[in-house]
Design a protein around this nucleic acid. Structure first.
Lengths: 229, 229
DNA sequence: ATTTCCTGGATTGTATACAGGTTGCGTGCA
DNA sequence: TGCACGCAACCTGTATACAATCCAGGAAAT
């Protein structure tokens, strides 16, 4: 694997897991040190991350890890409400049996309330669940868009930590989607997906506007909500 | 403006207008000569174009202008059928009066049958029409996705040249969408957008599978259809 | 004739030197 | 004290040299 790709992957993980803090400004030199590489592949990785919306580049000025904002979170949810139901419906018509099996596999992880590691595993499985459905549509553009959407969304969930009491609900909603896809009922799959996204939007109203802000425009940024365990 | 951005824009135009032929393989050296620059900004531009799906990069091997395939065209249309109606509905709820005026502006260009220049102007206006609607949703992700979709779609229309007899139909459909948005009727806007995309899919069934192929996998690539003027 | 191995050339990936731009601080003046 | 100007340090953008990789083609062995 080339340096550029390695750096891209590692940096992407670091951003997603908030190991690189949202809103933090970084220089190429720092990144070179952190990932043991020269500027060229680092720059390449950064350009790609910018394209995905995870990094902001101001010409001649520097790099900023994209801050998490309520605006973006709303926009992402709104787009999920557009894409996911469509993908579910298409998957119900076209998914192969193997693909359905894979989708179901990703749907069944229940995290242990309060355990961070377990919660993070759930987040990855959840991401894969949605991406797998997109792949089952057979539409490559749908896959691209869904991957981007899920990548940007997962950062918000990493930040929130623990929506502990919802574990069972989430799995139930996922399984309802799987059943509709397996039964080859597009409209039902669409409805279950819509329901799932809306429920998630309701559940995450626990994301609040902070007083001080979180390294960015104070009025638009968000910060971790207190756990509700 | 930086070299990288200049090269990106020019190259993007060249790809969109099929001045750089779909399926053609190019080397960094050629591109450096063509755009009078060194490899660094050329590479940066290429990476970005790859991210947008306009260019394919095989590590250590070279670059290929993304070929036009029936598969991709279908996928793009399918996604347009997902995004455009949603965007139209959202725009009907949120567009400002200025935005509606802009949308209408882009909707009203009728091309002169048979004139290539006029047809290409129409294509650009059509692209702007769809993008402007996306902007009126106030959702930045929707804008990103629509821009990408329209950019990739316009290549297919540049290749086809002239859907001469359809000029009036297109404008009528566009105007019907504008009316629904101006009337603040989301569901009607959604329906008009759906109708428009489906009609376009029907109109472009004139894209045929070639015998010889067009610089790529012969079974999947397409070539210009004969004009129907 | 066919297959295998090796090498040369071409092309991309990476490192680094150099150029250009921006910011912020310090100085001098009003 | 306040403000404008200019310089210096820092950072990113660009050019280019060097390393790594891949593939085509040919020679040799079967």
């Amino acid at each position: 694997m080339t340096e550029a790709i390695r750096i891209y992957s590692e940096m992407r993980n670091d951003i997603i897991s908030c190991d690189l803090e949202p809103g933090a400004s970084v220089s190429e030199a720092e990144l070179c040190a952190r990932y043991n590489a020269s500027r060229t592949p680092v720059r390449e990785a950064c350009r790609r991350l910018q394209e995905e919306g995870l990094l902001q580049i101001v010409p001649f000025r520097g790099y900023t890890i994209s801050p998490l904002t309520i605006d973006e979170y709303r926009s992402l949810n709104e787009m999920q409400l557009v894409l996911d139901p469509a993908a579910a419906a298409m998957a119900a018509e076209r998914a192969s049996d193997e693909q359905i099996a894979m989708i179901e596999r990703w749907a069944n992880y229940i995290y242990h309330a309060g355990e961070k590691k377990s919660y993070e595993t759930f987040l990855e499985w959840n991401r894969n669940f949605h991406i797998e459905i997109a792949q089952a549509t057979g539409n490559d553009i749908m896959v691209e868009m869904t991957v981007n959407l899920q990548t940007r969304l997962i950062r918000y969930f990493y930040l929130v930590i623990s929506m502990a009491s919802y574990g069972k609900d989430l799995v139930n909603e996922h399984q309802a989607m799987v059943r509709a896809i397996r039964a080859r009922k597009p409209e039902q799959a669409r409805d279950r997906a819509t329901e799932h996204v809306i429920r998630t939007m309701e559940r995450t109203s626990l994301i609040r506007i902070p007083q001080g802000g979180f390294r960015g425009d104070p009025r638009k940024d968000i910060q971790p909500a207190r756990s509700r365990t």
